[in-house]
């Protein structure tokens, strides 16, 4: 079986790749930087004695995505799982002042993610097999002043995955939405919080388990499901006055 990892330089994505490699799958490691993708692929091939190929892709080069997916399958064979892991937080302040910056955040987290999912879905659907994992965020569950460009793009992505799941259900293709809380990665390095921060390894294990049991949505760490339940329940007229 073959697994495509999109955004492999993320510590979470790399750990997910390792989980699949450990299960004996072949990997295709895709990242923005070709040299980095190759280093990660070498590492996985050595550690797990498996096949790991690599190439560069850009989430915002929309018109290349279908060809990219086809080229991955021509090299590695039919994909059984694809993981859309890339994302970018951006700088909220910068996005407020400069629409080009805001658009970049939307393009990476939403448009690019959708574009790749569509390409993958177009290949999985007629075959009636395959699994898609999309990494969204708890930040997408409610809009907040501190990160609403990123949050809305992730929220829209989660909504998109919901629709796609509904469409692909008939085709026996599973779609798993992963809503992450804090995970110890480059994105959160040095973040100040009293909440526990999950390791990329534990997160990856939970993600792969969720995909393998055909779960629709995973909150990880799981307590975020409770936190977001409360946050979503706060009436808007109260919420708009808060700074969370």
């Amino acid at each position: 079986m073959s697994v495509l990892i999109l955004g492999a330089t993320s510590s979470i994505a790399r750990a997910v790749a390792e989980q699949y490699a450990k299960l004996g799958h072949s990997l295709f490691i895709a990242a923005r930087d070709a040299a980095e993708a190759e280093r990660i692929a070498s590492d996985i091939a050595i550690r797990f004695d498996t096949i790991a190929k690599s190439a560069a892709f850009d989430a915002t080069a929309f018109d290349t995505h279908l060809d990219f997916v086809d080229s991955v399958e021509s090299q590695l064979g039919e994909l059984s799982v694809a993981v859309v892991a890339f994302g970018a937080m951006g700088d909220q302040g910068e996005s407020e002042g400069d629409f080009a910056a805001a658009k970049r955040v939307i393009d990476i987290n939403y448009t690019g993610a959708v574009s790749l999912c569509e390409a993958l879905a177009s290949r999985f659907e007629p075959r009636k097999r395959g699994a898609l994992i999309g990494i969204a965020s708890v930040a997408g569950d409610r809009g907040r002043a501190s990160n609403y460009f990123y949050g809305s793009a992730k929220g829209a992505f989660a909504l998109y995955l919901q629709g796609l799941r509904n469409r692909l259900h008939k085709a026996n293709v599973t779609v798993t939405t992963v809503k992450l809380g804090f995970v110890d990665t480059r994105m959160t390095f040095g973040i100040e919080t009293k909440l526990p921060i999950a390791s990329p390894e534990a997160t990856a294990q939970a993600i792969v388990n969720a995909q393998r049991r055909g779960a629709d949505t995973l909150y990880y760490p799981q307590f975020w499901w409770g936190i977001m339940g409360i946050i979503k329940a706060i009436p808007e007229r109260v919420f708009k006055k808060l700074s969370l």
Partner: peptide, 19 residues
């Protein structure tokens, strides 16, 4: 700690190149 990739290994000779 996160510069931790194994880059090449030759099982004949045992040479490992790693970060």
């Amino acid at each position: 700690e996160r510069l931790d990739r194994m880059l090449a290994f030759d099982p004949e000779s045992g040479w490992l190149r790693c970060e």
